[in-house]
Nucleic acid binder design. Sequence first.
DNA 1: TCTGGGGTCCTAGGACCC
DNA 2: TCTGGGGTCCTAGGACCC
Length: 326
Amino acid sequence: MILYVRFRLPSLQEAGGVEAVLPALLGLIEEISPVVQALPPDAALVDVRGAERYFGRDAAQLASLLRVRALAHCGVDCAIGAGPNPMLARMTAREAGPGTTRVVAEGEVAGFLADKPVAALYGTGPATARTLCSYGLDSLGRVAAAPLAVLQRIVGARAGRELWERARGIDRTAVVPNAAVRSVAAERSFTRDELDPVRHRRALLSLAEELGMRMRGESRVCRSLALTVRYADRSTTTRARVLREPTAHSATLTDAAYRIHESLGLQRARVRSLALRAEDLTPAERAARQLTFDPADERSRRIEAVADRARARFGPQAVVPGSLAA
DNA sequence: TCTGGGGTCCTAGGACCC
DNA sequence: TCTGGGGTCCTAGGACCC
């Protein structure tokens, strides 16, 4: 069986940072089963099939054990869903109240799913649910009874196959321990709709600094950068660029962000927020940085390394780019 | 209960190369 | 020399999850 554990973490303010709590909780889970996939900020998937044999206890008993330990060691309560696969564990957890475990066993799957609305299926959101309902497929039982070819015609070949399987309780995904992050992003919202390109650039600079710092902190570099502009009517435009070389260097990211921003030509556009995403992350040691012989470039990288160390010691506000200070 | 901010993955079309 | 078909990469956008 698979467990989906959702912790009831205290709010950020009183806890002094959630980052400190989740690792400790994951450590407790690992004492029960090593196959743990963290789902920050407050949840985890656990494959307990090995643990059930090893400890001679069923999933519900292991869930109770976990709850008692989380309360005793961290003072944190949790809601737990247990099912034959990750999808069912997640769906079951939605129905588990605080401090309880809800179990759906192999033989109960069809009954568990049949009367649910299609939107309750993991992986089916409002858009697909609307489409399915317009064909009269308004319950998972009806979707499960529909021929595969019909579902594929409605939502596409691949999505149709997945829908057909999921509505039958089939989920081929596995619990993947420490899956590496694929991208990092941050967003800056303006207090009012902002037309001023200078303020846009200040936001971009601050975003590039933040993403660069986060990547350098984890020894990762990104291959491409995407800028999303959200307008006053809440619509968005996204533009992505592949970088000349993978990097976590803030100055390079800032340059790239400025260029994408310019390419959008946002004259008179009322911009509500700007979001920058660093994509295709890879470990920094694997990135073959071209040798540059530009002393100014080398100098800026050295300054950046010093600034990172200062921030690590004195906090994120210790070093701020000149145009963002005060 | 809703919102918003961060994530993931998929699709489709065009460019380019072989 | 021309044509065609298949990969792969890039880009934009959509859907979904927590």
